[in-house]
């Protein structure tokens, strides 16, 4: 499965990445190589093998419904590029 330039443009749009012309070209080649590498898996005969949802054979892990202490607000906000004392600040979100 070859990666095309259009694939890279679409994925970069979904990931909100602004790529230069050169980057798009480099990434088309590099992503193509990655996908080709992973694509080797399709050589394995999986007829009659149930699809796996998880890498470990564990299920039904639950926590009880108990309120635990949350982060102090200053700490929660500390890494944000921009914030005021109440919340995170981002460029205007309209029509959400």
């Amino acid at each position: 499965m070859a990666i095309t330039r259009a694939d890279v443009e679409k994925v970069s749009l979904l990931a909100r990445l602004q790529l230069s012309e050169t980057e798009i070209e480099t990434l088309t080649v590099e992503l193509g190589k990655i996908v080709a590498y992973v694509d080797q898996l399709s050589e394995v005969d999986t007829d009659g093998v149930a699809p796996m949802a998880h890498a470990v054979e564990v299920s039904n892990v639950f926590a009880s419904d108990e309120v635990k202490t949350s982060l102090p607000r200053e700490q929660a906000l500390a890494n944000a590029p921009s914030h005021n004392p109440r919340g995170y600040l981002v460029p205007p979100v309209l029509g959400g």
Binding site: N84, R86, Y88, V90, P91, P92, V93
Partner: peptide
């Protein structure tokens, strides 16, 4: 107007 949006998580 153009001010930032505040996010409450």
């Amino acid at each position: 107007g153009t001010a930032d949006s505040e996010i409450d998580l």
